[in-house]
Structure formats: structure tokens, C-alpha cells
Design a protein around this nucleic acid. Structure first.
Lengths: 236, 236
DNA sequence: ATGTGATTTGTACTATCGTACAAAAGATCA
DNA sequence: TGATCTTTTGTACGATAGTACAAATCACAT
């Protein structure tokens, strides 16, 4: 009595459910949530609109399932990399490893899930910009732990920087990360073809290098008031 | 015969056209383009849906007019500040002034237009994330000049950094800037109330400080290959 | 006061949205 | 093969979308 993995997991065509998820992920990440209709998704997946309702009940449920699929693996990968980074001796190298542990899983595949992590990260960026309610709830309760762990790790390797500054700078990191995935063509355009915004490896290296330097900047409370001298003022 | 500025410029109630523009700007910047209906905008402005059609013909036309209203003043202000920044002698101070010339107008009012520049910048961030076609066209032909001027100025004060790196880092700056305006509450939340993400002055100072440091990071081509030693690798 | 042009209102049209649901089709096992 | 469960299809419904347009209303010059 060999139990075949067939009866309940198999669909008629090779996993239509996964095809719908992948199509929805791509379309949401590119055009936003509201601009994409259930019919668009079904067509892109080669499915019937009713099939989307059958598998995910509602459009929100579909988005929810996309998040559920990715959050676990990506955060697991991040915490693994973060744990390894914490063990790096040299403080400078450790900081870089920590930043890399945060950035790399966002660009590359979190596991063998379809499409890789970049698409899901782009999706999160777009949902964040749209103020999507479903995404907001999931993010606050799923990603804040990871973010706190990341901030703590950075803080440990830069004890002289106030936590407030580190929060701001890690916020900037996430914004830069998101934007790099949302508008990669802008990099190619502004560099007049010298750089390829769609090259993940370049993006990662540039982002890590810039972010490490940003984290290492002098603390704001001390530096800013002392430094603001003959600099252009904020009015006229 | 004193020409009064009345007959053709004045509406029945104090400029309903402006009220619609302001309402649309706020709603688009908060919820994205597609999530907001013309009826939502009209209601928020205290106007009739048909009035929107009268003034702006289409929903796209309304968005177009919002961009037209802001792009000129904001880029003018940026180029003024940039010109002033270029005249700063000290290289370190000049770089900071250049970054400030880019950041400040995005946060504060570009002129006496309604609502200040922050709302419009948030709008641009959201449109960028949604891949809005109208916005994409305007941005490419309006903001690229400003961006190039900014990149050139930064490059002048950091001649030893390859232009490619500067493009990437200014791209990160814009992403961080956008994200700070899109999700300011995240800063407050992650800092556990110690920082206020909605405080524009703090955001500006933090962003300028972090960005200057990022620009001053060693060039990637030289530093990255030499430095990548015992750092956590990108796989497992 | 009255005519005139600019604006606002009210309403209606068509298209498309998310979703529900019954019927058809496929798969699995007695 | 036939019974049963899962999945897909096809269709329909109410809600809401963007937009058009005629009527009503207002501001102002004469």
C-alpha cells in the first residue's frame, strides 16, 4: 500500500493553483493591486476567473496567500544569514555581513518558490506604496520581528550610534532596496547605459556598500548641529 | 478703467478647481491612482463628479495637471539651491549642500502651492510604484534633467568616485526619500516612539547625513573585490 | 435687469469589477 | 463501471467605475 501523493494534491493540469499565484504575484508587483482584475490574473495563468474564486475565495485572499507563501522562507533565510553574520569577528566585516543578510534574501530566491525573492520584494514595495490594508497587517506582524533583529544586530556592531539613527538608516535601506526593484530602468537610463539596474548582483553590491557607509556615518545628534554652518539654508 | 482680476479667473465658490486638485493629490498620494474614484475625489472636494470632468476632462488629465502644477516650481527651487550649493568652497560642506538642495524641496513646499512639496513627492512615490503610465512619461522628460544636474554636481565634488556608483547612490537616495514619505509611521513604530517618522526636519537631517556618508563610501570597483573575504556568502 | 458665458448639478450610459453558483469535466477507488 | 470528490467552466448578478451631456445656476458687463 504505497501512498501516492496524488489524489488530493494534484490538479488536472500541472498545478493550476500555483500558476494563478505566480501570475497574480507578477501582475500585482508590476501594476499594483487595484489595477489588476481577477480576470487579468486568470487569463495570465490560463485559467478561468471562477477558478480563482474557487482556490482563494476572494482577491484579498489571493494576496494573503502570496504573502503566506513567501514570508516564512524569506525570514527564515534572513535569520540564518543574520546568525552567521553575528559570528563574524571583525566589526567592519560583521556590519557588512549583517547588511548583506538583510539585502540578499530580498533579491534572490528565498527557496525553491516560483520566481525568486525579487518579485515578492517588488510586490511588497508596491503594496506598501499603495497603503494596501491586507499587506499592512501582515507586514506589521511578520516583518517587524526581522527588522528589530536586524536593527539590534547593527546596533551591536555600532554601539556608539544612537538607536534612533540606526532605525532611520535601516528605514532608508529598505526604501532604497524597494526602489531599486521598482524602478531598475531608471538606473540604466541615468547612467546612460553604463550600469544595468536590472543586474541583481550589481544592485546588491552597490546597496551593501552604500548602506554600510551610511550606518557608519557620525551620529546625528553630535554631528549635525556642530556642522551646520555656511551650508545652504532650507529657505530660498 | 481698473482691470479687476475677476471675471474669468473666479469660480462661484472659492476656486473649486483648486479644491479638486488638492483633494485628488491627497487621495492619490495616500491610496494610489486606481483605488481612488472620481466620485471619491469630488466628494472630498465638496464638488460634483461632473465638475471634475468639466475641469480636467479625464481622470488622467487630472493627474497630469497635478504634475504640471508642481514640477515647475519644485525643479526651479532645486536648481536655485543647487546653484548655491555649487558655490560652497569646502568640498565636504559642498556635498552636503548639494544633497540638501535635492532633499529639502521634496519635503517642503515648492512654492505657495497647496499642501507643500511632501504631498506631491509622496504622490510621485506611489505613482512610481504603481508603474503609472502618465507619471512615467512626465517623470522621464521632466525630472531626468534635474537628476543629471544633481549627479553631475555630486560627481564634481567626488571626482574619484565612478559616475556609475554615484548614479546608484543617488538612486538609493531617491528610494529612501520616497519611502520616508510613504511609510513614516514605520520609523516611529520600529524606534518604539523614540523617533517621529512624520517630523520632516528629522527626516531631512537623517537622510542628508546618511546620504552624504553613502556618497563618500569608497568606490565599488576598487573596494568590493578586495574586501569580500570571510564575509557571509550569498548562498546558505 | 438682463443677457452671456462660465461653472455646477443631476442623471444616465456603457464597461468592467468582484463574486456567487450551478453544471460540466476530470480524477480516484470500490 | 459507477460512485464520489475535486477541480474547472460558463454564466449571471449587483455594484461601481469613467465619462458624457443637458439642464440649472451663478457672476458679471452692459
Amino acid at each position: 500500500m504505497v501512498r501516492k501523493p496524488t489524489s488530493k494534491e494534484t490538479a488536472r493540469k500541472p498545478n493550476m493553483r500555483e500558476a494563478i499565484l505566480a501570475a497574480a504575484e507578477e501582475l500585482f508587483a508590476t501594476n499594483g493591486f487595484n489595477a489588476v482584475s481577477v480576470r487579468d490574473i486568470a487569463q495570465a495563468a490560463g485559467a478561468n476567473p471562477g477558478s480563482v474564486t474557487y482556490h482563494f475565495k476572494t482577491k484579498d485572499g489571493l494576496l494573503l496567500e502570496i504573502y503566506r507563501r513567501h514570508c516564512g522562507p524569506m525570514n527564515l533565510r534572513r535569520s540564518e544569514l543574520l546568525a552567521a553574520a553575528r559570528r563574524v569577528r571583525d566589526l567592519q566585516d560583521r556590519l557588512e555581513a549583517i547588511v548583506r543578510a538583510y539585502v540578499v534574501p530580498a533579491f534572490t530566491s528565498g527557496s525553491d518558490l516560483t520566481g525568486g525573492g525579487a518579485r515578492f520584494t517588488r510586490l511588497r514595495a508596491v503594496m506598501s506604496a499603495e497603503g494596501n490594508e491586507v499587506a499592512r497587517r501582515i507586514i506589521a506582524q511578520t516583518f517587524d520581528d526581522t527588522s528589530h533583529a536586524f536593527i539590534d544586530a547593527v546596533h551591536e556592531s555600532l554601539p556608539h550610534i544612537p538607536r534612533t539613527d540606526i532605525v532611520w538608516r535601516s528605514h532608508f535601506l529598505l526604501g532604497a532596496l524597494y526602489y531599486s526593484l521598482v524602478t531598475p530602468d531608471r538606473v540604466s537610463r541615468l547612467s546612460r547605459g553604463e550600469a544595468d539596474g536590472n543586474d541583481a548582483a550589481s544592485a546588491i553590491e552597490q546597496l551593501v556598500q552604500a548602506t554600510v557607509a551610511a550606518f557608519q556615518a557620525p551620529a546625528l545628534d553630535q554631528a549635525a548641529p556642530a556642522r551646520r554652518r555656511a551650508v545652504a539654508s532650507s529657505k530660498t
